[in-house]
Structures are given as C-alpha cells and as structure tokens.
Design a protein around this nucleic acid. Structure first.
Length: 740
DNA sequence: CACAGGTCTCTTTTT
DNA sequence: GAGACCTGTG
C-alpha cells in the first residue's frame, strides 16, 4: 500500500487519505480521478480496516462500472468482490426488486425502455384525445422525464401549471402515463430512481439498512447527476456523511437529460464541513493537446476557473483535415489509421473515431469494411433494440409478468396469427372499462361482445403463453428461448417479413447470439431466473465491455467520456453538425456551451495524436448540405494546428467563396491556417439584396422581418422574425430570402 | 377485418 | 434515409 501511495501526487494522496466526512473532488480531464477512487477504496480497506462490504461506488455507465470493477479487482487483493460497484440504475433495481412491494408494486416489475415509453405516451394521448399536432409525443415524454428528474409528481406538476395551457395538458398526460405504468407493474428508467427515493422516504427501516450497509459512498462523473440522483445519494449518505464525489464541471454534457450542475456548485452547502480538493495535473495528453483543449473551453463563461497542466512533452501539433464530402472523410481517416498503424507503432485498438451523432457511424463502417480495418461500434442501434430480439424478449416478459401490456401486445400478432388492430382495440376497451390488464381481458375474451371469430385465436394465444409459463419453471432459459422460437415458427416469420435473405440470416445470427447470452447469464448467476435475466438485459445499453480484440473504436462523443486513446479523430467538425444546428439556433446560450464542453471532452480523450476533420459537403437526412468549419475549430490557436496540403487547398477554396476574384490569401502563408485573416474579407452585405429591417419572404416559413445579419465567415447568418414561424436563424446562401 | 403499399414527417446526445 | 401513419384492396 505504501508503494501505491507513492505513485500518487500530493493532491491525489490527500484525496485518498481523506476518508471520513464529505469530500468534493474537482478533477480535470485526465487527472487520474478513477485512479484516486480505486486507491481510496484500497486505502479504506487495507489501512482503515473498513469492510469492503460497506463500500459503494457509483458510476454513470455500465462501461465505466465494468472498467472500475476490473481495476478494483486487480488492485485490491482481498474482498474486492464485496465492494458494490454499480450504476445508479442497477443499484436502484437491486433495491427495488427486494422492497418495492412496500410501495404498492409487485417485485417482478418490468422496466420500460424508451420505445415502450413512447408507445405508452402515444396511447395515453389518444385516450385523452390530445392532438399530437399541438403537443408532440417527444415533447410530452421529455417533459415527463424532466419532471421525474426534478422529483416532481404528476399532482405537483398539474398544480404548478397555473395559466400555462401546455403545462396543464402535459400534466394530464403525465398523470395518466404514470397510472398506466403502475397498472402494468412497470417502471421507466427515471422511476427507478424516483421510486427508490419514495421507498426510502416511506420506509425508515429499509433506508436505515442501506445506510448501514453503505457507510462509504463514492460517486464518479458527479457533474452529470440530476436532482433525483443527488437526492438518492444524499439520503444514503446522510447518516455517516462519508460521501466522496468526483466531477469536472467542464465535462458536464448531460444537461439535456436533466443533469444539474448545481449539484457540484452547491455540494458544500448541502454537506457541511466538505473538504474540497482539486486535481489539476493531467497525466494523459501531450502539452499541445492540452493547450488545444484549454483554448476551446476558455470560451465558456459558465465555468469554474481551472488550471490544468502537464509534465508531458509538447508532442506533435494536432491536425486538421478537410474533405469534399462525408465519404472522402471516412476514407481519408481509414487510410490515416492504416498508415499510423504501420508506421507509428499504434494498434487499431489505440484509435477512436468520435462523432456527434450516431448516424455518422455508417459511412465509417462501410469504409472500414472496404479497407479491412477491424472496428467496433458502440451505441446506436442497440443489440437489444433489434426487432427480433425485442420480439423474443417480449415473449419472455409476457411469460414473466403478464401485466406487461406492451410486451403482450407486441407479440400478440407476431408471428402473424390473424389478430388485427380492430380486435386489439376491442380488448383494450374491455380492459379499460373493467380496469384490468390487457392480458386479463384476453382471458375473458368470451365476455367481450362483437369480437366474433377472433375469440378462438385469442384463446389459442393465451393457452400458448400459459404453457410456456409452466415450461419455464422446469426448463433452462436457453431451452425456453429455443422452444419459443420453434413453437411460434419464428424463423419462418422472419423469412416472410424480410425481402432480403441476408437480412434473415443476420437476424438468425442475432437470435443465436441472444441464446448464448442467455447461456452466459445462466452459467454466471447464482440463482438464475427469468426476472433477473430480463432485468440485466434492460439495463444494458450497449454491448458493453471492450473485449481484448484489436479494433478501432467508433462512438459518439457522449459515450467517449471517461475513456482515453492514443490516437483520436474528431470527425464532422462542421457548424450545424457539431455544434449541432439545435444548439446554434437555440436562444439559450448555455446550449452552445454544452456543445463546447462536449468538444472539450472529445479533445481530452487523446493522449498523443489528435486529428480534426470536416467535410465541405455532406448528406444529412437525405439532403445535401454545405457546412462551414466548426466554430470550435476556429477557437484553436493556429500555431497548435497543422493542416496538410490537401486540407489547405480545400480550405482556401472554402474561404474564397464569398469573394471569387480575390487571389488565394492562404497560399502565402505557412502551413498553418489563418482563419481570422481570411474571415475578415467576406462578401459585402449589400450583395444579399436585403438589410436589417427589410421584409423578406422564405419558401417554407413565409413572410418575416430581418432582425439581424451576422458576418459568419464565408456566409451570413441572417435572423428573421417570421409572422407565423417565429424567429429563425439561417445561412443567407441557403435561405434564399427574397426582399418584398 | 387484415394487410400491403404509398405518403408523410422528422431528425442530438443516453441510463 | 428511416420510420410512422394512412389509405385502398382483397
């Protein structure tokens, strides 16, 4: 242990040895915070005699939890397996599985994923006769989710509506949504936290038991916790006050999901006698990369001042590369990876391609396949969200919990049994009238009037389910799944629905994969059972755990948080893509700051090499768009960034566009790109044919008044207040506004 | 009453 | 480009 402590710097050591009382660790990117957490656990156990059983470490993602688990196990010799390393959500599930009956649910509740949530909201809105034109499902759903993050109940939400019509309507949806979930004995992701808090608040004995168990609590990525999560850990830690949270306000990137930055800023007020320790030495990146990161993040106004420094070498300048389009970008990056692998002692697994949106992954995937580069994509279409997997899961869920209406209805006519929408709505009506679940209504199918010949089909279905149910008590999980696939002739069904034989084969492979996952679960579990398996599946967001194989990592910037790579590519550095169009046009300036933090996260993933790239033309949602170089790129000092000859050429062309007659201004320069010089010479505003105050017409938005024209480099950003569409910001070249 | 094919919309990030 | 939704046909 002494040995272990020696490897830490002074601040880190301080943090490790501060074991009693609340501790706030402000840890910059790459400052070794995970290292500190793990050493702290080791110190608690080996030096302070703390029982590992009393330690709880909470992370944000499964990936992070898995990684921490691994590192904990490798450093701590005895008892590491008793430390509870978990995400917020899986912690709550484990607690609720034991005690949720105390607050009126059954312990075998199901967990609804976002598809399920959407479905429920849709039905609720239909039932309440709310036009989706006025309030979109997405909007209602995110409002509900925000409310839960803030621990606002449906009643409170409705009460606070006042004169706000929209809020009142959403309140009604929220209330109905919640009672629907209750009826189905289901919880959504947010409920997992909310209901655990409810359980603790109403059952002092349960809370006390967990307070006694978790005497030492550590929370990683604390900047991303929301109000509910903070409430939860506050409750748990309130007795012993041994709470250590680690975070970095510059890496807060989940505001859209309810993350509350005040949790960091106000921590010291909530927990008195908090010790604050800052970790500012970066061990990960070269000086150059760190300078780039600092140059970008300093443009944010809402942040705690920090001085991140490193003893690492300066390193190579980062590179900026331009491409004509997204395909060229992918090919160019693929070639660059190949050359780095062959020349620079870099492995494929040292490389990561990070993008803003999942949709960008596809181009890279295709390119990598062509170039024979091993790769692995994280996130995106989750394995467990694939149709065939969701179908089989729905069978398992129905067998496990017949209250789960959504699951039942998903498979009622899958494979096709000739049970159509009309029959389903008859059953639903009956279920609502009698206040019973969908499945129970089906059991009474004979009492449902006008259901006609469909009744026999329904009975056949419920008979099949109950026979699966009795089989499930004697069969292994693996055999049950195989039995379901065979009995329902599911493979034949796949052949029916897929035009393409390859698609069917892929789906079959996925089913095989699913079966092996079931086997893996059964082999690993102490007491394997269907409910627990379903719960594990529900909480796994992606096919986690980077296994050892040598492959390039492809993921969104969001999922990259907490990871590090020798060689990083930040691709699609274009205004409108990153920062996203939404954040540029938002009237809330903190949205753009969140994007910038995301950029900061991306940059600081790189240890040695960092490449930024952008495409001048890109296919986005079926349309060709021309985007400017990301404003974040322009925040990087030129002396830190190298652009190769191809990039220089295309950039020169790029910036020349507004004034075609001018000589190439970039040509005279060194290899560094001089943005400011170039940007000072755009087309004259007069060439637009309109000015601030003019009335203009837009093809889609109609008539409006120009309120602002901003010189954005090679194009103008025009703000127009439209009579019907409201205020919009757009690029002059594409807006094609006509003066009236 | 079920199903197939055509039309429409909507796009960020995730446990 | 993909998915949800609607409409016409068998």
């Amino acid at each position: 242990m002494d040995n272990l402590l020696e490897k830490l710097n002074e601040q880190q050591r301080k943090a490790v040895m501060h074991t009693e009382g609340p501790l706030l660790l402000l840890a910059g990117a790459g400052s070794g915070k995970t290292r500190v957490l793990i050493h702290r656990m080791a110190y608690l156990i080996e030096e302070c005699g703390v029982n590992p059983y009393n330690i709880l470490a909470i992370t944000f993602t499964n990936k992070a939890a898995g990684e921490m688990r691994e590192r904990v196990d490798s450093i701590i010799e005895v008892g590491s397996e008793s430390i509870w390393v978990s995400t917020f959500h899986s912690l709550c599930v484990r607690i609720l599985r034991r005690y949720i009956d105390r607050i009126g649910y059954e312990n075998n509740f199901t967990i609804y994923d976002s598809d399920d949530q959407k479905q429920v909201v849709k039905e609720v809105m239909k039932r309440l006769d709310i036009d989706t034109k006025f309030i979109k499902e997405r909007r209602a759903l995110s409002a509900i989710s925000r409310a839960k993050d803030e621990l606002i109940t449906p009643e409170e939400y409705c009460a606070s509506a006042g004169n706000d019509r929209e809020r009142a309507v959403i309140g009604r949806i929220y209330r109905e949504y919640q009672s629907q979930l209750k009826k189905c004995n289901a919880l959504d992701f947010d409920d997992l936290i909310v209901k655990t808090i409810e359980l603790f608040k109403t059952n002092a004995d349960v809370l006390n038991a967990y307070q006694e168990r978790f005497k030492y609590i550590m929370v990683d990525e604390y900047q991303d916790t929301n109000t509910a999560q903070f409430g939860l850990i506050s409750l748990l830690a309130s007795k012993y006050q041994n709470l250590c949270v680690v975070g970095d306000d510059d890496q807060s990137i989940y505001k859209f999901r309810g993350a509350n930055i005040n949790n960091i800023l106000q921590f010291e007020q909530v927990f008195e006698d908090t010790t604050v320790i800052k970790l500012e030495q970066n061990y990960r990146s070269t000086q150059n990369i760190l300078d780039v990161a600092n140059a970008v993040i300093k443009n944010n106004t809402y942040r705690k001042e920090k001085a991140l420094w490193t003893e690492n070498k300066e390193g190579e300048p980062i590179s900026l590369r331009s491409f004509d389009n997204g395909f060229d970008e992918a090919n160019g990056i693929a070639r660059d990876i190949k050359s780095k692998v062959s020349v620079k002692n870099i492995k494929y697994s040292d490389c990561a391609v990070l993008y803003r949106t999942n949709a960008q992954s596809r181009t890279f995937e295709e390119s990598f396949i062509r170039e024979n580069i091993p790769y692995r994509i994280f996130g995106g279409i989750n394995f467990y969200q694939r149709r065939e997997i969701k179908d089989i899961l729905a069978y398992l869920k129905t067998i496990d919990n017949a209250h789960d209406d959504l699951a039942v209805r998903r498979i009622l006519n899958v494979p096709k049994r000739g049970i159509g929408a009309a029959t389903v709505s008859r059953i639903m009506e009956y279920a609502v009238e009698n206040d019973i679940t969908f499945y129970n209504a089906m059991l009474h199918v004979k009492d449902i009037p006008s259901i006609g010949k469909a009744a026999a089909k329904i009975e056949a279905f419920t008979y099949m389910i109950s026979s699966f149910r009795s089989k499930s008590t004697v069969m292994s999980l693996k055999d049950l799944v195989i039995d379901i696939i065979n009995e329902t002739k599911y493979i034949d069904y796949l052949k029916e629905i897929d035009e393409d034989e390859d698609d069917t084969n892929e789906r079959e492979q996925n089913l095989d994969e699913f079966i092996s996952k079931a086997v893996t679960y059964e082999d690993g579990a102490e007491n394997p059972n269907l409910s627990e398996f379903l719960e594990e599946v529900a909480l796994i967001a992606d096919i986690d755990s980077m296994d050892g194989s040598d492959a390039v990592t492809l993921m969104t910037l969001h999922s990259a948080k907490g990871l590090e790579f020798e060689n990083v590519y930040l691709v699609g550095m274009e205004d409108g893509l990153f920062p996203s169009y939404m954040s540029i046009t938002s009237d809330d300036s903190t949205d753009l700051e969140e994007e910038r933090r995301l950029c900061y996260v991306g940059i600081t993933r790189a240890k040695k090499y960092l490449t930024l790239s952008h495409a001048r033309m890109r296919m986005m949602r079926g349309e060709t768009t021309y985007n400017k170089v990301s404003r974040f790129v322009k925040e990087i000092p030129v002396e830190l960034m190298f652009s190769d000859s191809g990039a220089r050429k295309s950039l020169a062309r790029d910036f020349e566009m507004p004034s075609p007659k001018r000589e190439n201004p970039v040509k005279k320069r060194t290899s560094y790109v001089m943005y400011d010089t170039v940007f000072d010479k755009p087309a004259s505003a007069g060439s637009l044919g309109y000015a601030v105050g003019d009335t203009v017409k837009h093809v889609k938005f109609g008539v409006g008044t120009v309120t602002d024209i901003v010189n954005g480099g090679r194009d103008y950003e025009v703000t127009v207040d439209f009579e019907t569409a409201g205020v919009k910001k757009m690029f002059a070249t594409f807006a094609k506004l006509v003066k009236m």
